[in-house]
Protein backbone atom coordinates (compact mmCIF):
# COMPACT_ATOMS: atom_id res chain seq x y z
CA UNK A 1 0.00 0.00 0.00
CA UNK A 2 1.24 3.51 -0.79
CA UNK A 3 0.69 5.96 2.00
CA UNK A 4 1.54 9.62 1.70
CA UNK A 5 3.40 10.72 4.80
CA UNK A 6 5.80 13.61 5.35
CA UNK A 7 8.92 13.71 7.43
CA UNK A 8 9.22 16.22 10.23
CA UNK A 9 11.96 17.88 8.24
CA UNK A 10 9.67 18.97 5.40
CA UNK A 11 9.57 22.76 5.84
CA UNK A 12 6.19 24.22 6.79
CA UNK A 13 6.07 26.41 3.67
CA UNK A 14 6.22 23.33 1.44
CA UNK A 15 3.50 21.62 3.47
CA UNK A 16 1.38 24.78 3.16
CA UNK A 17 1.90 24.72 -0.58
CA UNK A 18 0.77 21.11 -0.74
CA UNK A 19 -2.32 21.87 1.33
CA UNK A 20 -3.23 24.69 -1.04
CA UNK A 21 -2.31 23.09 -4.35
CA UNK A 22 -2.02 19.29 -4.16
CA UNK A 23 -4.45 17.57 -6.53
CA UNK A 24 -4.33 14.27 -4.69
CA UNK A 25 -6.67 14.38 -1.68
CA UNK A 26 -4.50 11.93 0.28
CA UNK A 27 -1.38 14.03 -0.26
CA UNK A 28 -3.19 17.19 0.77
CA UNK A 29 -4.60 15.58 3.91
CA UNK A 30 -1.22 14.18 4.89
CA UNK A 31 0.32 17.64 4.48
CA UNK A 32 -2.45 19.14 6.61
CA UNK A 33 -1.79 16.60 9.35
CA UNK A 34 1.94 17.22 9.30
CA UNK A 35 1.38 20.95 9.50
CA UNK A 36 -0.97 20.55 12.45
CA UNK A 37 1.48 18.33 14.32
CA UNK A 38 4.35 20.64 13.52
CA UNK A 39 2.44 23.66 14.74
CA UNK A 40 1.53 21.89 17.97
CA UNK A 41 5.11 20.95 18.63
CA UNK A 42 6.35 24.44 17.97
CA UNK A 43 3.70 25.82 20.31
CA UNK A 44 4.96 23.50 23.04
CA UNK A 45 8.49 24.79 22.62
CA UNK A 46 7.45 28.42 22.23
CA UNK A 47 5.40 28.41 25.42
CA UNK A 48 8.55 28.46 27.49
CA UNK A 49 9.06 32.21 28.01
CA UNK A 50 12.32 33.64 26.74
CA UNK A 51 12.63 35.95 29.71
CA UNK A 52 12.29 35.14 33.41
CA UNK A 53 8.69 34.70 34.31
CA UNK A 54 6.49 37.29 35.88
CA UNK A 55 8.20 40.48 34.71
CA UNK A 56 4.78 41.99 34.27
CA UNK A 57 2.64 40.28 36.84
CA UNK A 58 -0.93 41.23 37.46
CA UNK A 59 -2.40 40.61 40.89
CA UNK A 60 -3.57 37.04 41.13
CA UNK A 61 -5.69 35.26 43.71
CA UNK A 62 -4.30 32.85 46.27
CA UNK A 63 -6.90 30.24 45.44
CA UNK A 64 -6.98 27.63 42.71
CA UNK A 65 -9.49 27.71 39.89
CA UNK A 66 -10.17 24.04 39.22
CA UNK A 67 -12.37 22.31 36.66
CA UNK A 68 -12.64 18.53 36.41
CA UNK A 69 -14.21 16.95 33.34
CA UNK A 70 -15.37 13.37 32.73
CA UNK A 71 -14.35 11.84 29.39
CA UNK A 72 -16.78 8.93 29.84
CA UNK A 73 -14.18 6.60 28.26
CA UNK A 74 -14.45 8.22 24.84
CA UNK A 75 -11.00 9.84 24.36
CA UNK A 76 -12.76 13.01 23.23
CA UNK A 77 -11.35 15.94 25.17
CA UNK A 78 -12.19 17.80 27.28
CA UNK A 79 -15.28 15.79 28.28
CA UNK A 80 -18.24 17.00 30.32
CA UNK A 81 -17.65 19.34 33.27
CA UNK A 82 -18.45 17.46 36.50
CA UNK A 83 -16.90 19.63 39.26
CA UNK A 84 -15.86 23.26 39.32
CA UNK A 85 -14.03 25.35 41.94
CA UNK A 86 -15.85 25.52 45.22
CA UNK A 87 -18.48 22.95 44.26
CA UNK A 88 -19.36 20.18 46.70
CA UNK A 89 -17.83 16.70 46.38
CA UNK A 90 -19.56 14.37 43.94
CA UNK A 91 -20.29 10.63 44.27
CA UNK A 92 -17.46 9.76 41.85
CA UNK A 93 -14.30 9.46 43.98
CA UNK A 94 -12.06 9.68 40.92
CA UNK A 95 -13.39 13.17 40.22
CA UNK A 96 -12.84 14.22 43.84
CA UNK A 97 -9.32 12.77 43.99
CA UNK A 98 -8.39 14.72 40.86
CA UNK A 99 -9.95 17.88 42.30
CA UNK A 100 -8.15 17.44 45.63
CA UNK A 101 -4.84 16.62 43.91
CA UNK A 102 -5.03 19.78 41.81
CA UNK A 103 -5.69 21.72 45.01
CA UNK A 104 -2.83 20.06 46.91
CA UNK A 105 -0.43 20.90 44.09
CA UNK A 106 -1.65 24.51 43.87
CA UNK A 107 -1.32 24.91 47.67
CA UNK A 108 2.17 23.41 47.64
CA UNK A 109 3.59 25.72 44.96
CA UNK A 110 2.00 28.77 46.60
CA UNK A 111 3.14 27.96 50.14
CA UNK A 112 6.62 26.66 49.30
CA UNK A 113 7.66 29.00 46.48
CA UNK A 114 4.97 31.75 46.35
CA UNK A 115 4.09 30.50 42.87
CA UNK A 116 0.54 31.14 41.74
CA UNK A 117 -0.47 28.05 39.79
CA UNK A 118 1.67 26.38 37.16
CA UNK A 119 2.34 29.49 35.08
CA UNK A 120 2.95 31.72 38.11
CA UNK A 121 0.00 33.88 37.05
CA UNK A 122 -2.99 31.97 38.34
CA UNK A 123 -3.65 29.73 35.36
CA UNK A 124 -6.87 27.74 35.86
CA UNK A 125 -6.18 24.06 36.51
CA UNK A 126 -8.09 21.69 34.28
CA UNK A 127 -8.24 17.92 34.38
CA UNK A 128 -10.06 15.16 32.54
CA UNK A 129 -10.73 11.81 34.24
CA UNK A 130 -12.00 8.45 32.93
CA UNK A 131 -10.03 9.00 29.70
CA UNK A 132 -10.29 6.08 27.27
CA UNK A 133 -11.09 2.51 28.19
CA UNK A 134 -9.00 0.70 30.82
CA UNK A 135 -6.40 3.28 29.93
CA UNK A 136 -3.00 2.75 31.62
CA UNK A 137 -1.65 6.26 31.69
CA UNK A 138 -1.79 9.86 32.81
CA UNK A 139 -0.32 12.73 30.84
CA UNK A 140 -0.10 16.47 30.45
CA UNK A 141 -1.21 17.59 26.97
CA UNK A 142 0.09 21.14 27.21
CA UNK A 143 -3.21 22.43 28.55
CA UNK A 144 -4.73 19.93 30.94
CA UNK A 145 -4.08 16.79 32.97
CA UNK A 146 -5.53 13.59 31.61
CA UNK A 147 -6.10 10.46 33.74
CA UNK A 148 -6.96 6.92 32.72
CA UNK A 149 -8.74 4.42 34.96
CA UNK A 150 -6.00 1.79 34.59
CA UNK A 151 -6.71 -1.73 33.38
CA UNK A 152 -7.35 -3.07 36.91
CA UNK A 153 -4.88 -5.90 36.28
CA UNK A 154 -1.57 -4.02 36.28
CA UNK A 155 -2.62 -0.50 37.20
CA UNK A 156 -5.27 1.13 39.36
CA UNK A 157 -6.94 4.46 38.68
CA UNK A 158 -4.19 7.03 37.97
CA UNK A 159 -5.76 9.58 40.33
CA UNK A 160 -4.89 7.51 43.44
CA UNK A 161 -1.40 8.99 43.91
CA UNK A 162 -1.15 12.70 44.67
CA UNK A 163 2.49 12.63 43.53
CA UNK A 164 1.32 11.55 40.06
CA UNK A 165 -0.98 14.58 39.96
CA UNK A 166 1.88 16.79 41.16
CA UNK A 167 4.13 15.17 38.54
CA UNK A 168 1.76 16.01 35.68
CA UNK A 169 1.16 19.59 36.79
CA UNK A 170 4.90 20.11 37.18
CA UNK A 171 5.22 19.33 33.46
CA UNK A 172 3.13 22.48 33.14
CA UNK A 173 5.48 24.40 35.47
CA UNK A 174 8.45 23.28 33.36
CA UNK A 175 6.62 24.23 30.16
CA UNK A 176 6.14 27.75 31.53
CA UNK A 177 9.68 28.08 32.95
CA UNK A 178 12.82 26.26 31.76
CA UNK A 179 10.96 24.56 28.88
CA UNK A 180 13.31 21.58 29.02
CA UNK A 181 13.25 19.76 25.66
CA UNK A 182 11.45 16.47 26.11
CA UNK A 183 14.18 14.24 24.74
CA UNK A 184 17.48 12.70 25.83
CA UNK A 185 19.11 14.20 28.98
CA UNK A 186 17.05 17.41 28.98
CA UNK A 187 13.96 15.20 28.67
CA UNK A 188 15.13 13.04 31.57
CA UNK A 189 15.60 16.25 33.59
CA UNK A 190 12.07 17.31 32.58
CA UNK A 191 10.81 13.97 33.89
CA UNK A 192 12.96 14.17 37.00
CA UNK A 193 11.77 17.61 38.11
CA UNK A 194 8.20 16.32 37.69
CA UNK A 195 9.05 13.40 40.00
CA UNK A 196 10.90 15.70 42.43
CA UNK A 197 8.09 18.22 42.85
CA UNK A 198 5.42 15.50 42.56
CA UNK A 199 7.03 13.77 45.54
CA UNK A 200 7.36 17.11 47.36
CA UNK A 201 3.62 17.77 46.90
CA UNK A 202 3.00 14.52 48.75
CA UNK A 203 5.66 15.20 51.40
CA UNK A 204 4.26 18.69 51.96
CA UNK A 205 0.69 17.42 52.30
CA UNK A 206 1.85 14.80 54.84
CA UNK A 207 4.31 17.21 56.53
CA UNK A 208 7.09 14.62 56.23
CA UNK A 209 10.81 15.31 56.57
CA UNK A 210 13.28 13.87 54.05
CA UNK A 211 13.96 10.98 56.42
CA UNK A 212 10.27 10.19 56.88
CA UNK A 213 9.26 10.33 53.20
CA UNK A 214 8.93 7.14 51.12
CA UNK A 215 10.39 8.81 47.99
CA UNK A 216 8.12 6.67 45.82
CA UNK A 217 6.30 7.81 42.68
CA UNK A 218 2.92 6.20 42.15
CA UNK A 219 2.60 4.29 45.42
CA UNK A 220 -0.81 2.63 45.34
CA UNK A 221 -0.95 2.68 41.55
CA UNK A 222 0.04 -0.96 41.05
CA UNK A 223 -2.97 -3.27 41.05
CA UNK A 224 -3.37 -5.95 43.75
CA UNK A 225 -1.15 -8.94 43.01
CA UNK A 226 1.51 -6.98 41.12
CA UNK A 227 4.93 -7.44 42.71
CA UNK A 228 6.07 -3.94 43.51
CA UNK A 229 5.52 -0.89 45.69
CA UNK A 230 5.26 1.91 43.11
CA UNK A 231 6.27 2.95 39.58
CA UNK A 232 9.55 4.57 40.56
CA UNK A 233 11.75 5.01 43.62
CA UNK A 234 13.92 8.10 44.04
CA UNK A 235 15.59 6.55 47.07
CA UNK A 236 16.52 3.34 45.22
CA UNK A 237 15.90 3.64 41.46
CA UNK A 238 15.48 0.22 39.85
CA UNK A 239 13.74 -1.37 42.86
CA UNK A 240 10.13 -0.12 42.60
CA UNK A 241 8.75 -3.32 41.03
CA UNK A 242 9.80 -6.74 39.77
CA UNK A 243 6.84 -8.57 38.32
CA UNK A 244 6.30 -11.36 35.76
CA UNK A 245 3.86 -9.22 33.73
CA UNK A 246 5.30 -5.76 34.30
CA UNK A 247 8.97 -6.71 34.15
CA UNK A 248 11.61 -5.18 36.39
CA UNK A 249 11.97 -1.49 37.20
CA UNK A 250 14.60 -0.45 34.60
CA UNK A 251 15.73 2.84 36.16
CA UNK A 252 19.45 3.42 36.77
CA UNK A 253 20.51 5.26 39.94
CA UNK A 254 23.90 6.38 38.61
CA UNK A 255 25.64 7.22 35.31
CA UNK A 256 27.17 3.72 35.32
CA UNK A 257 23.71 2.44 34.37
CA UNK A 258 22.84 5.22 31.89
CA UNK A 259 20.59 3.83 29.15
CA UNK A 260 21.28 4.81 25.52
CA UNK A 261 18.05 4.26 23.59
CA UNK A 262 15.89 5.90 20.95
CA UNK A 263 12.71 4.62 22.63
CA UNK A 264 10.77 6.82 25.01
CA UNK A 265 12.23 10.06 23.53
CA UNK A 266 15.69 8.81 24.40
CA UNK A 267 14.85 7.04 27.65
CA UNK A 268 13.42 10.07 29.46
CA UNK A 269 11.60 7.86 32.00
CA UNK A 270 14.65 5.63 32.49
CA UNK A 271 17.55 8.02 32.94
CA UNK A 272 15.45 10.33 35.10
CA UNK A 273 16.41 7.89 37.88
CA UNK A 274 19.87 9.49 37.97
CA UNK A 275 18.85 13.12 38.74
CA UNK A 276 16.01 11.74 40.90
CA UNK A 277 18.53 9.93 43.07
CA UNK A 278 20.77 13.01 43.20
CA UNK A 279 17.86 15.01 44.61
CA UNK A 280 17.13 12.32 47.19
CA UNK A 281 20.80 12.23 48.26
CA UNK A 282 21.01 16.02 48.54
CA UNK A 283 17.70 16.28 50.41
CA UNK A 284 18.57 13.60 52.97
CA UNK A 285 22.07 15.07 53.48
CA UNK A 286 20.67 18.58 54.05
CA UNK A 287 17.82 17.18 56.14
CA UNK A 288 14.54 18.66 57.33
CA UNK A 289 11.64 19.26 54.99
CA UNK A 290 12.94 18.55 51.49
CA UNK A 291 10.84 21.29 49.87
CA UNK A 292 12.50 23.97 51.99
CA UNK A 293 16.18 24.05 51.02
CA UNK A 294 16.77 21.31 48.45
CA UNK A 295 13.45 21.89 46.72
CA UNK A 296 14.11 25.64 46.71
CA UNK A 297 17.50 25.08 45.04
CA UNK A 298 15.96 22.91 42.32
CA UNK A 299 13.08 25.40 41.93
CA UNK A 300 15.53 28.30 41.57
CA UNK A 301 17.30 26.45 38.74
CA UNK A 302 14.05 25.47 37.00
CA UNK A 303 12.55 28.95 37.09
CA UNK A 304 15.65 31.17 37.14
CA UNK A 305 15.53 31.91 33.44
CA UNK A 306 19.11 30.92 32.64
CA UNK A 307 18.90 27.12 32.31
CA UNK A 308 19.04 26.19 28.60
CA UNK A 309 16.10 24.16 27.26
CA UNK A 310 18.64 21.63 26.02
CA UNK A 311 20.47 21.36 29.39
CA UNK A 312 22.21 18.06 30.06
CA UNK A 313 22.79 16.48 33.48
CA UNK A 314 26.17 18.19 33.95
CA UNK A 315 24.72 21.63 33.14
CA UNK A 316 21.83 21.10 35.51
CA UNK A 317 24.14 19.80 38.26
CA UNK A 318 26.42 22.84 37.98
CA UNK A 319 23.37 25.12 38.12
CA UNK A 320 22.11 23.48 41.34
CA UNK A 321 25.54 23.81 42.99
CA UNK A 322 25.61 27.50 42.01
CA UNK A 323 22.01 28.00 43.23
CA UNK A 324 22.86 26.36 46.57
CA UNK A 325 25.73 28.85 46.98
CA UNK A 326 23.59 31.82 45.96
CA UNK A 327 20.88 31.12 48.52
CA UNK A 328 22.57 29.11 51.31
CA UNK A 329 26.06 28.25 52.58
CA UNK A 330 29.02 25.91 52.25
CA UNK A 331 27.24 22.94 53.84
CA UNK A 332 24.40 23.03 51.31
CA UNK A 333 26.83 23.53 48.40
CA UNK A 334 28.81 20.50 49.57
CA UNK A 335 25.68 18.37 50.00
CA UNK A 336 24.43 19.17 46.51
CA UNK A 337 27.84 18.65 44.91
CA UNK A 338 28.34 15.35 46.76
CA UNK A 339 24.96 14.12 45.57
CA UNK A 340 25.92 14.66 41.93
CA UNK A 341 29.32 13.05 42.57
CA UNK A 342 27.62 9.96 44.03
CA UNK A 343 25.45 9.49 40.94
CA UNK A 344 28.45 9.96 38.66
CA UNK A 345 27.42 13.23 36.99
CA UNK A 346 30.14 15.37 38.64
CA UNK A 347 33.73 14.09 38.96
CA UNK A 348 35.07 13.73 42.51
CA UNK A 349 37.20 16.70 43.64
Amino acid sequence: MTVPVFCGIVPPHILEHLVAHAEDDAVREAAERSLALDALNRVHRAEAPSTPEGIVRERVLDTAERTVCDDHHTQRLPGRVVRTEGAAPVPDQTVDRAYDGLGATFDFYLAAYARHSIDGRGLPLDATVHYGQRYDNAFWNGERMIFGDGDGTLFNDFTVSVDVIGHELTHGVTQYSAGLDYQDQSGALNESVSDVFGSLVKQYSLKQTADQADWLIGAGLLAPGVHGVALRSMKAPGTAYDDPNLGQDPQPATMAGYVDTSDDNGGVHLNSGIPNHAFYLAATAIGGFAWEKTGQIWYDVLTGGTLPASADFATFAAATVAAAGARYGAAEVAAVRDAWVQVGVVAPA
Binding site: V3, F6, S34, H44, A138, F139, E168, Y182
Partner: peptide, 19 residues
Protein backbone atom coordinates in the same frame (compact mmCIF):
# COMPACT_ATOMS: atom_id res chain seq x y z
CA UNK B 1 -4.71 1.81 5.46
CA UNK B 2 -6.63 4.67 7.02
CA UNK B 3 -4.55 4.63 10.22
CA UNK B 4 -1.19 4.57 8.45
CA UNK B 5 -2.27 7.42 6.18
CA UNK B 6 -2.36 9.63 9.26
CA UNK B 7 1.09 8.58 10.54
CA UNK B 8 4.44 10.30 9.97
CA UNK B 9 7.73 8.78 8.86
CA UNK B 10 9.65 10.31 11.76
CA UNK B 11 8.70 10.19 15.46
CA UNK B 12 6.76 13.24 16.58
CA UNK B 13 7.58 15.30 19.66
CA UNK B 14 4.43 14.21 21.46
CA UNK B 15 3.51 15.45 24.94
CA UNK B 16 5.02 14.69 28.36
CA UNK B 17 4.08 11.17 29.48
CA UNK B 18 2.04 10.58 26.31
CA UNK B 19 2.30 7.25 24.53
Amino acid sequence: REALGACTRTPTFGVPDGF
